[in-house]
Design a protein around this nucleic acid. Sequence first.
DNA 1: GTTCTAACA
DNA 2: TGTTAGAA
Length: 120
Amino acid sequence: MRIGELSRRSGVSSRALRYYEEQRLLRPVRRPSGYREFSEDDLDSVRRIRLLLAAGLGTAMIAEILPCMVEGNEGLAAGCPELLDALGGEHDRIAASIAELESARTLLARIIATPVPTPG
DNA sequence: GTTCTAACA
DNA sequence: TGTTAGAA
């Protein structure tokens, strides 16, 4: 299928799909016309890419683990055990970010809730 | 009409 | 990322 159809079926903009190819997340073949030709499997790949992006992973990481992702009974699973380490690292990195943001939120909430001292 | 690349708001 | 110009 061409990029327009994949865009419609996936709900992802053609601009984003071209970007995914540039990031090596998708490898469509080229027609003689120069048009990209995507496979049916690419539709699943796009869904997985969106999921992994939503999970906070970067395109570089996604490019590495995408070929290892397998459909489990409860969703996507890491088919390659050696990648669990990298995923664990991402998890910890996100957890650290959350901790920092929570500190910032608490600080702001405290400032907002502190009354201005009245003169006198 | 659809897609391509490159570049800009 | 969206959008657009100009070409195929």
